[in-house]
Design a protein around this nucleic acid. Structure first.
Lengths: 131, 131
DNA sequence: CCTACAATCTGTAGCCGCTACAGAAGCAAG
DNA sequence: CTTGCTTCTGTAGCGGCTACAGATTGTAGG
C-alpha cells in the first residue's frame, strides 16, 4: 500500500493520463517511484500539485507561468512575484479580448454586406478579392 | 520576362517567403512554373490569390475556411455558402470573447485578493493551492 | 573571368499543449 | 488459463507558421 496509480490520480484531479505523463516528461511534476511491475505510484502530494496545475491552467496561465507559480508557492513573500505574473497574464487576456472585438466588428460588417447584396455579388468574397 | 520570383511576391503581398512555400506545400496555392535554375516564377494571379488569403487570415479564418472561400470565389451564387462560413467563424469569435471575459473577471478577482492580502498570505497562490 | 554577396532552393525541427495512436506488458477476476 | 482492463514506452499529429542548415543560382563590381 505505497500509493495509487496514474488512473486514480487522473480521476482525482481531472487531468488526463497522457497529460500527466507529458507533465512528467517536461519536468513540470517530479518523476514518481515505480511499483515492481513498473507502474507509477503516487501519493497525496501528487494530487495537490496536479490540482494546482489544473487550476492555473483553467485560468489560462501558460505552463511556464505555472512552473514559476509552483516555485513561488513554497517561498515566503511570494505575493509580489505572483501578482506580477498574474497581472501580465491578465493584460495579455485583455489584449486578446480587444483584438477579438475588433475582429468581431469587422466580421459583422462583412457578413452584413454579404446579406444585403442580394443576388448579384457577394460582399464578403468581394472584400477579400478587392485589389 | 516570364514572371517574378518569390521575394517580389512576398513584398507585394506581405506574406513571408517561408509562408508562401508552406502554402504551396499544403496545396493552398498551386505550384508555379520554375525558371531554368529552379526558381519559382509567379504572375499577377499569384498576387491576387495570396492577397485574398492574407485578408482572410487577417480576419482570423482558419486555413480550411480560406480554402473553401477561395473555392467559392469563382462560383456564381456563392454568397450563401460564404455567409455561412463567415457566420460560423464569427460565432466562434464571439464564444472566444465570452470565454476570455469570464477569465478576465476571475483574474481580476484573484489579483485583487493578492494585493489586499498585505503581508501574511498570497491570495492568488492560496486560491491555486486550496484543497 | 573571378569574386563576393544576395536570393532562393530543399528539408527538417521547433513552437504550444496536448491528443492519439501502436504494440507490449502487468494485473485481477472468473 | 484466458479474458479484458490498465498501464507502459515511443512516436506522430494538430495549426500555422518560423527558423534554421547547407546547397545552389543569379548578379554586380573589379
Amino acid at each position: 500500500m505505497t500509493g495509487f496509480r496514474i488512473g486514480r490520480l487522473s480521476e482525482e484531479t481531472g487531468v488526463h493520463i497522457e497529460t500527466i505523463r507529458y507533465y512528467e516528461k517536461i519536468g513540470l511534476v517530479p518523476k514518481p517511484p515505480r511499483s515492481d511491475g513498473g507502474r507509477r505510484l503516487y501519493d497525496g502530494g501528487a494530487i495537490q500539485r496536479l490540482r494546482f496545475i489544473r487550476r492555473a491552467r483553467d485560468l489560462g496561465f501558460p505552463l511556464d507561468d505555472v512552473r514559476s507559480l509552483m516555485g513561488l508557492a513554497t517561498e515566503p513573500g511570494c505575493c509580489a512575484d505572483a501578482f506580477e505574473i498574474a497581472e501580465r497574464h491578465r493584460s495579455d487576456v485583455r489584449n486578446r479580448i480587444a483584438d477579438l472585438r475588433r475582429l468581431e466588428r469587422r466580421l459583422a460588417e462583412l457578413t452584413k454586406a454579404c446579406q444585403s447584396d442580394g443576388d448579384l455579388e457577394c460582399g464578403l468574397i468581394d472584400a477579400l478579392s478587392r485589389s
